[in-house]
Simulated assay, not measured.
Amino acid sequence: MSGLDLANARLATPPREPLARLTRPVLVDLAERLERRGWDLVADWFWGEAVLLQGILRVAAAREVEPPPRVLGWLEERRRAGIAIEHVNHVAPATAALMVAPSDPVWLSLADDLEHWLAGTVTRAPNGAIEHWPGGVWADTVYMAGLFLARLGVQAGRPELLAECGRQLLAHAEVLQDPGTGLYAHGSHGGVTIPCRWGRANAWCALASVEFLELAAASGLAERGQVEAVRDVLGRQLRALTGLQPEHGVWSVLVDDQPETRGILETSAAAGIGAAMLRASVVVPDLDAAVTEAGWRAVRGALAYVDPDGALTRTSAGTVLQLVPFGYSVIRDDLPQLWGQGLALKAVAAALEHLP
C-alpha cells in the first residue's frame, strides 16, 4: 500500500439501503421525477442530452405510452438552430431522433450525413476501433457512435451499418476488455490500455452490446457469427461484474475496488449495468440466473439514490481518462448529471419490462 492515497476512500459516505420493493407505481413515479429533473439540465446537442432522451424513450416504450412530444420538439428545435459536429459524441442525439421518428426522411437524411462524417473524419485504432480522441480508444464510443450506427442500419435497411456496430463492439473489446476478468477499462492512451476498470465504461459497453443484440434479433439483419461473438464478450463481462457486486448493489467507481477508490460509489454505472443485466436475460440465452439477480440488486441499489426532486445523486461528473486509479477518487459527484438521469431511466424501463 506504500505510496497510495487512501484518504478519499476512507472518507467515503456509507451506502444507502436498496429500495425494498419495486412495483409499477413506484417505478412510474421514479420515472416521472427523473424525467422532470432531467429536462432542467438539457442545454445543447451533445452526448449527455442523448443519454437522457434515450432513457425517456425507453421508459415510454416500457409503459406502452406515446413518446413525450417534448422529445421530438427539442430535437427539431436544435436541428433548426443548426448542429455543429465536431466530435464523435455529437452523433449520439441522432440515435434518439431515429427512435422517436424512425421513418422521417428529414432525420434519416441528417443521420446519413452524420454517418458519412464518422466514416470520413474520425481516426481509428489499428484494429479499426473508432477513437474517442486521436490515439485513444474509450468505452464511451460504442454507446455514443455504435448505437447510432446500429439504429441507422436498421431504420434505413443498411445491414452493413448494423454490422459496423458489431465490429466496433468487438474491436473495443479487443482493446479494452481484460481477457482474464472480462471487465472493461475506461480507455487507452497512445496505444496502451490503462487498467482502470471504470464503472460507467462497463455500463456503456454492456448497454451497447445488449442494444445491438436486441436490434439484431428484431431485424434479422446481423450475421450469426458476429451475434455470437458479441454475446460471448457480454456474457463474460456481466458474469465478472456479478462476482464483484457488493450486497447493496452499487459498485465503486472502479468496479474492481482498487484501494484508492474502494467504497466511493457511483450510481449511474450501477443503473446502466443493472439495466443491461436485466435485458441481457432475453438476448443471451445461456446467461446465469445469478446475473439477472445481480441486475435487480443494481437497479434497486441505484434507484435508492434518487432524491425527492428526481435527481440521481452520487453520479460522477463527465470523466476524462485517468492514467492512475487515484484519479477516479476525486471526480465530483455532488451535482445531478444528464447521463445519470438517462441511465436511471434506462434502469426504470428495464425494471418495468421485467417485473415478475
Rank of each mutant, 00 (worst) to 15 (best):
V283S: 08
V291R: 03
L338A: 06
P325K: 02
D286Q: 14
P259E: 03
V306G: 10
S252N: 06
V320R: 15
I331K: 13
A269T: 00
E247K: 14
D307A: 14
P285F: 07
D334A: 13
S281W: 01
A275T: 08
G327R: 07
H248F: 15
Q258S: 10
Y305T: 11
A298V: 03
Y328A: 08
D256V: 09
L303C: 09
S281D: 06
S316Q: 14
G243F: 09
A298W: 08
D309M: 06
D309N: 00
R332L: 11
P285D: 03
L321D: 04
P336K: 08
V330F: 03
A270D: 04
E260V: 09
E260R: 04
D256Y: 04
D309A: 13
V282R: 15
A302I: 05
A275F: 06
G243P: 06
R279K: 13
V306L: 13
V284N: 05
Q258M: 04
A289Y: 00
S252R: 03
V284R: 01
Q322R: 15
E266N: 11
A317F: 12
T319A: 12
G249F: 12
S268P: 03
A280L: 13
S316P: 00
G318R: 12
L323C: 01
A280E: 04
A317Q: 07
T319V: 12
A311S: 15
A290H: 00
D333I: 00
H248R: 14
V282T: 11
R300E: 02
R279H: 01
D309V: 15
